[in-house]
């Protein structure tokens, strides 16, 4: 187990560096420079480039960047918010994205598991219709469309909820973005949970438990729930990363000052360090989440756990 983890962690670190290198090269080929301002003369631009070290060859810049990274320095922003360290920039915005993402994930996962289990247990016509409609909308309709719809109905027409995010009132202003995001999560988790639960319910061991006369509640919790929710763990991890990276449009729409908006701004204005910093954050997060899931899986499923420790 320890050896396995160490190997995983090493591979993860390597992966992050490879991603950074690729990003570095890609940014190099991107047209334009961070200093696209008509008011700046070519000499001034050259000065700026020298100041930030952009006149050096890519490979040297890469190693310098990595070296600084180990000191916790991700460089400074060039254009969005000149000379602000990237770390401060991200630290200010990341919690907002994280909060909305995590809340949506929790609500969506909970609703999805409940929906999936209910529709697996009660296979009535009504339940089936509810399940199909919800999952179909959640999966087929993009979350920004849903957000627009919510925004129009609840915000513009009914005037019930504020249409823009406000840092001073994060609760009411994040209801709509969270609703839009968690709907998709619910649909995906719901579908997955239902399929898993149906599989488990038709398994021999549940049938055997039923003929042993075990209480329905026991079968439900100890047999069906545990066995069908283990695979859901993997799903949740993937969705978490998706939510943190993919809520770009939603953040724009409700003007949430999160990292999604930061990333789009950074890309359009060639603010290299911001793009790189976020990229590093995203890939680091993705890899960490996968690692944590692996460990979680070991705890939830004895087959994995013991398989790893067997001498």
């Amino acid at each position: 187990m320890g050896k396995y983890l160490l190997k995983k962690i090493l591979i993860s670190i390597m992966t992050i560096f490879v991603i950074l290198l690729i990003m570095f090269l890609l940014l190099q080929f991107m047209p334009g420079s961070p200093f696209n301002d008509d008011k700046l003369s070519p000499e001034q631009i050259e000065m700026m480039r020298q100041k930030y070290g952009l006149d050096q060859p890519v490979i040297i810049r890469f190693f310098r960047y990595v070296a600084n990274m180990f000191k916790g320095d991700l460089g400074v922003s060039y254009s969005i918010s000149a000379n602000t360290p990237i770390t401060t920039l991200i630290a200010r915005r990341f919690p907002v994205t994280m909060e909305i993402g995590l809340v949506s994930l929790c609500i969506g996962t909970f609703a999805g598991v409940v929906l999936g289990l209910l529709s697996a247990f009660f296979r009535s016509r009504v339940m089936n219709v509810i399940y199909s409609v919800l999952t179909l909308i959640g999966i087929a309709v993009p979350s920004y469309l849903l957000a627009m719809f919510l925004s129009y109905c609840l915000g513009f027409r009914a005037n019930l909820l504020p249409m823009l995010y406000d840092v001073r009132d994060p609760f009411t202003t994040s209801i709509m973005p969270v609703a839009a995001l968690s709907f998709m999560v619910m649909a995906i988790i719901g579908q997955f949970t239902k399929a898993e639960a149906m599989d488990v319910m038709n398994s021999d061991y549940v049938l055997l438990a039923r003929c042993q006369g075990l209480k329905n509640s026991t079968i439900m919790v100890k047999y069906i729930l545990r066995n069908s929710l283990i695979p859901v763990i993997t799903m949740v991890g993937n969705l978490l990363v998706g939510l943190l990276t993919g809520s770009l449009v939603i953040e724009q729409m409700f003007s949430i000052p999160g990292i999604g908006t930061l990333l789009t701004q950074a890309i359009s204005s060639n603010d290299y360090n911001v793009v790189l910093g976020l990229c590093f954050l995203y890939s680091g997060m993705y890899i960490t989440v996968r690692l944590v899931l692996d460990i979680l899986y070991c705890f939830a499923d004895p087959r994995v756990r013991l398989g790893g420790t067997k001498s």
Partner: peptide, 19 residues
């Protein structure tokens, strides 16, 4: 169920709860 009439199945590999 289980008290008067009990049953065992064909495949012991799938008859027990894996977790």
């Amino acid at each position: 169920a289980g008290k008067k009439i009990a049953m065992i199945f064909q495949d012991p590999m799938t008859s027990l709860n894996p977790v």
